[in-house]
């Protein structure tokens, strides 16, 4: 028996909007730790890892570890039917091939349940080792989204370089080149508006921009985003989900042939 009640149902709606274009089908894993997902995009270049910790749910019942295969496009369609202020409850019986999403309006005057078929998904689970990153950049998520969108109108790839001067995003295309440098800026009114750069070693990596633009669909989940970079390692683009956990996107770099 599985029963997860999330008072801030809009979080789950936002999570689905953030991942549905990157991944078609995925297994959601439910354990005492929380509700999680790990999945690769169809070209196996990017990986998404989601964790919503059990403590973040108002009610969390998961009698045994369970993995539920879902089509994320279909799940997003169902969650779009929930209001932004609705409480969302996920329910599944042991051995069942369906999951139920229950939506309750805040005043309890409207209660809806949507039942969705589960699917068997044979997915590869990857172990992600702890890594020491050469550089970690925290910046406003809206600023990062703006940079990715702007650069993708010029080129297809971005070079991210971190030096003591700041973090530089560069691209080139048929019409020309673009460089955007963000300097560390901690003298702002609100902490979420700061750009903070922790650098152990300078690092420069090249990535396909279209994946970054996909990751920025998670912008409504967090005011800030963290980029963790190391030479020859996938970049980690992390959006923290307040009080609950995170959504992390890993993107493999382009490497020398």
């Amino acid at each position: 028996m599985l029963e997860l009640r999330l008072v801030q149902g809009s979080l789950l709606k936002k999570v689905l909007e953030a991942v549905k274009d990157l991944v078609n089908d995925a297994n959601f894993d439910c354990s005492a730790t929380g509700f999680s997902l790990q999945a690769m995009d169809s070209s196996h270049v990017a990986l998404v890892a989601l964790l919503l910790r059990s403590e973040g749910f108002e009610h969390y019942r998961c009698d045994r570890n369970i993995s539920m295969g879902m089509n994320l496009g279909n799940m997003a369609k169902m969650l779009k039917c929930a209001g932004n202020d609705d409480i969302i409850t996920l329910k599944a019986d042991d051995g069942s091939d369906v999951v139920t999403f229950m939506f309750e309006s805040p005043t309890q005057d409207k209660i809806a349940d949507f039942e969705m078929k589960l699917m068997d998904i044979d997915s590869e689970h990857l172990g992600i080792p702890e890594a020491e990153y050469h550089a970690i950049v925290r910046m406003p998520s809206s600023e990062f989204a703006r940079i990715c969108k702007d650069l993708s109108s010029i080129g297809d790839t971005v070079v991210i370089s971190v030096t003591k001067e700041g973090v530089k995003f560069s691209t080139r295309g048929d019409i020309g080149t673009a460089n955007i440098v963000c300097r560390q800026n901690t003298t702002v009114d609100k902490p979420e508006e700061a750009t903070v750069i922790e650098m152990n070693e300078p690092v420069s990596l090249t990535f396909a921009l279209r994946y970054f633009n996909s990751f920025t669909k998670a912008t409504p989940l967090s005011n800030t985003v963290t980029l963790s970079l190391s030479s020859e390692l996938p970049v980690v683009v992390e959006y923290k989900i307040a009080e609950m956990g995170y959504i992390r996107f890993y993107l493999a770099p382009k490497i020398e042939d």
């Binding site: 270049v45 689970h125 172990g127 996938p234 493999a252 382009k254 490497i255 020398e256 042939d257």
Partner: peptide
């Protein structure tokens, strides 16, 4: 020239 690496190059199957 750079080519696109896949994620499994860095993380092992668990």
């Amino acid at each position: 020239l750079k080519s696109q690496a896949r994620i499994a190059r860095f993380f092992r199957s668990s």
